[in-house]
């Protein structure tokens, strides 16, 4: 296991070319597994408390189909454009990486803006964190996801600055790839929020 040799079957992509890159990518998968567990505790809390509305508004009263569908579309599309950025990175096309990654971040920012205005609207309707166990669970679960999206936008922006300064090296490619993994993961979490919170709230 000399650290310079590339094992058989390693994809011929820049992010996998060093042992450090391969280990960090695997390590990030382990981190994502831990994130799955973090979110599962918030989902469990929300689902157990979802009927405890304490006389306050229910999901049916609050959730607007149009709004949460737009949020879902923004995030799904951003996951797709982020995937395209990874493809451009593997072609060594720096400009393509910037075009698709910045599109991804703008879609992410759009999602975040919609979510914040959704929260503000709920609070104005008298549905706050303190109103009921249902709303405490809702704000903590959806808010934690929103916080992750915020961190993702800042993190990927910083990586893009490095790419602008250093170009597409094995190191910056690995950082881009890992940032992309994080972004796709946030989309996976949102799919479950879409299903377990919004759609289930309408049933």
């Amino acid at each position: 296991m000399a650290s310079s040799s590339v094992p058989k079957g390693t994809p011929n992509f820049p992010e996998y070319q060093t042992e450090e890159g391969r280990l960090k990518i695997f390590g990030f998968w382990v981190f994502l597994a831990a994130e799955v567990v973090l979110f599962s505790t918030l989902f469990a809390t929300y689902l157990v408390l979802a009927d405890r509305t304490a006389g306050g508004p229910t999901g049916k009263d609050l959730f607007e189909v149009k709004d949460f569908m737009i949020e879902t579309m923004l995030l799904l599309t951003s996951s797709f454009t982020c995937g395209l950025a990874t493809l451009e990175m593997r072609k060594g096309n720096k400009k393509g990486v910037f075009i698709w990654m910045i599109t991804t971040l703008l879609l992410g920012a759009g999602f975040l803006g919609m979510e914040i205005s959704e929260f503000v609207a709920y609070v104005n309707e008298g549905a706050t964190l303190q109103t009921s166990a249902f709303l405490s669970g809702f704000f903590v679960l959806v808010g934690t996801h929103g916080l992750h999206v915020t961190v993702g936008i800042i993190w990927i922006s910083l990586v893009l600055i490095q790419v602008a300064q250093r170009g597409l090296t094995p190191t910056t490619c690995r950082k881009l790839f890992i940032g992309g993994l994080y972004w796709h993961f946030l989309d996976v979490v949102w799919i479950f929020i879409f299903t377990a919170v919004y759609l289930t709230g309408l049933i």
Partner: peptide, 24 residues
């Protein structure tokens, strides 16, 4: 399709994320 879980150290990646999902 997007996270390329079947690339790289795919067996270990799939084991890790599957275990996370199992706990979830």
């Amino acid at each position: 399709y997007f996270m390329h879980v079947t690339e790289g150290s795919k067996v270990y990646q799939i084991i890790s994320i599957s275990y996370g999902l199992f706990v979830a």
